[in-house]
Simulated scan of single mutants.
Amino acid sequence: MSVSSVSPIVTTQTMPTWRQKDAEPFVRIEQINKTFGDFTAVNNVSLDIYKNELFCLLGGSGSGKSTLLRMLAGFESPTSGSIIIDGVDMSNVPPWERPVNMMFQSYALFPHLTVEANVAFGLKREGLPSREVKQRVADILEMVQMGHLARRKPHMLSGGQRQRVALARSLVKRPKLLLLDEPLGALDKKLREETQFELMRLQDELGITFVVVTHDQEEAMTLATRIGVMNNGEIVQTAEPHEVYEYPNNRFVAEFIGNVNLFRGTVVSDERDSAAIQCDDTNGLIALDHGISCAPNQLVNVAIRPEKMRIAREPSSAQNNSAEGVITEVAYMGSQSIYKVRLLSGKEVRITQPNSHRDTGERLTWDDHVYLSWDADSSVVLTS
């Protein structure tokens, strides 16, 4: 691993809060459990979320992420454990008294009220002076770029516009914590991508802590300062997006986040700065540029992302980290091409290559015999 000769100076002022050893969490979830009869929805979850974070709870259906969010909001009570927000234990605090607001996937707008009236509804219920309500509503509608549509009703708006109204209604009460349950699920792909950046901009401008629940890996990777990956009611990894992708801590995370090729093998050497794994699927050794602290002859999984693998018609000069096979599928995606290759062992792997140049030569195609290779720093060893 190469190291730059000049390292940047990182201070606590520039370091993200969650990396600072003495930082106080804004939200502290301590050994939370939630059961419904014999079913455990959330199992002994502990989690710290820091002020001004945009934290994503990511998991599949039934993973427990929405139940955890509802407990933060106060709509569900924990079976055991505690939730502390801004230093206050929320155990006996009802939803309407928590410094929290929640934006639902359905948006839940009042169809008979205008955009302006929908956003003002909560403020009026609090009995705020009409002048203050009007000003705060106008300010937040301008921030979400909906001021020019203030007099319209929800049925006159597009899906993206309704989403912005729901967001404005959630933000106008200035909560310390905003919870968003699948907030972009109803939008089409292009609008969803645009709105992701809009959410990030708003969160940065307002400085409110966001907790977003999503099942969409790309959405979580785009939005989050950190991701908590959930499975079977547990948080199995909490890290920044690039760490979750590049260094998954178990097989579930590796397979759930993006695409991955997994190879089963036996550890044959393990030194401080190198390791080697005998792999029948590649008919050779998988070499790593770091140690893995495994027992001799231990069976492990080696994860290699598709974009880390090279594909060519000629073999590489390297003795290790290589395989050969036949292309069985090709997908040209514009910015990239995806190849499925059946190795000599019969295992099928996926390779992704960027189309960074306009190729005028002969492209790799179905039934081509090809050779794969990858670098020693491209593999991640998974022992669980």
Rank of each mutant, 00 (worst) to 15 (best):
G346C: 11
E97V: 00
S317V: 07
Q31M: 09
S80W: 09
S80P: 12
C294M: 04
A239S: 14
R28V: 03
L191M: 07
E329L: 12
L180R: 08
T209M: 05
R358D: 14
I32W: 06
L179T: 05
V211A: 07
G265Q: 13
S46Y: 02
A23W: 08
N283V: 07
Y371G: 03
E198A: 10
E314K: 01
V100R: 01
P129E: 03
D38T: 09
D181A: 13
S66N: 09
K176W: 02
L187T: 09
E240L: 01
S322Q: 12
A166T: 12
A318V: 04
E76A: 05
F55N: 02
A138F: 08
E76R: 09
K173A: 11
L199R: 06
V119M: 01
K176R: 12
S80Y: 07
L157Y: 00
A220G: 01
K134S: 15
F210M: 13
K65Y: 09
L68E: 07
Q217P: 04
L206E: 09
S384H: 13
V93K: 03
P95C: 07
S2V: 10
A376H: 01
E234I: 06
S335L: 07
P315G: 04
R226P: 06
R350N: 07
R272W: 10
P111W: 03
D280A: 09
F110R: 05
S61D: 10
E348K: 10
V229D: 00
T328I: 14
V302T: 05
K51F: 02
S91M: 09
R201T: 12
E324V: 03
I257P: 08
G346T: 07
N250D: 15
A331K: 08
Q278M: 10
M1E: 08
Q203Y: 12
Y247I: 06
P175V: 08
A220T: 01
R201V: 11
G62C: 14
V244E: 03
D216L: 10
N261A: 01
L149D: 04
R192P: 07
S130M: 11
T14S: 13
I32L: 15
M90E: 08
K347P: 01
S77P: 05
L262C: 13
Y332H: 15
S378A: 15
E314S: 02
N52A: 09
L157W: 00
A73K: 06
S317W: 04
N261K: 02
N43L: 05
M230A: 14
I83R: 09
G228P: 00
V42M: 02
G159A: 12
T328D: 13
A312H: 06
S2H: 15
